[in-house]
């Protein structure tokens, strides 16, 4: 089946089985490999992209369900002012260890700040708990989100 998708502002047509997850269309058909495969069942969030501005786990969305909704991947995140701010905070805090999950974390965090510009710790827990980090960089992810949002870090201890 041929599907025409709008990815990062560009219209592209692919010929794939309708069941093919958006993740594999991005990675194998469009060479957009910044979006990562982690679990294949929507439990880790490594594959998070924006579909119509919403954070979506692309491993669990068949290409046939995308329709005309615009898709943004990590490769174009810096065109989003919130995304750009988060990327800068990620660099400033030096969030990543292995870095594999961080594209998904950044996509999820951008969706969070788009909805909740000044998130509380509870907001961060709610919105970011679908994104696993095996290196467990959660403390820095939280710090970077707050820095990008201009929210003061809670004093610990």
């Amino acid at each position: 089946m041929a599907y025409t998708l709008t990815v990062n502002g560009t219209s592209r047509t692919v010929d794939v089985d309708p069941s093919t997850p958006l993740l594999w269309v991005l990675r194998d058909q469009m060479s957009l490999v910044g979006t990562k495969f982690g679990c294949g069942v929507g439990m880790c969030g490594a594959c998070t992209v924006h579909v119509n501005g919403q954070a979506v786990k692309s491993c669990s969305m068949p290409v046939s369900a995308v329709g005309e909704q615009p898709i943004t991947t990590i490769e174009a995140l810096s065109e989003n002012p919130i995304g750009k701010r988060l990327q800068e905070a990620w660099l400033d805090v030096d969030v990543a260890q292995c870095g594999y999950c961080q594209a998904g974390q950044l996509m999820a965090a951008t969706a969070l700040l788009s909805k909740v510009p000044q998130p509380s710790d509870a907001d961060i827990d709610t919105h970011m708990s679908g994104n696993l980090c095996r290196c467990a960089t959660y403390i820095r992810i939280r710090k970077a989100i707050k820095q990008a949002a201009g929210v003061a870090e809670k004093k610990e201890g």
């Binding site: 957009l32 910044g34 870095g99």
Partner: peptide, 10 residues
């Protein structure tokens, strides 16, 4: 990390 700028843009 020297790869951080590449990591955050995928």
């Amino acid at each position: 990390d020297v790869d951080a700028p590449k990591i955050v843009v995928g």
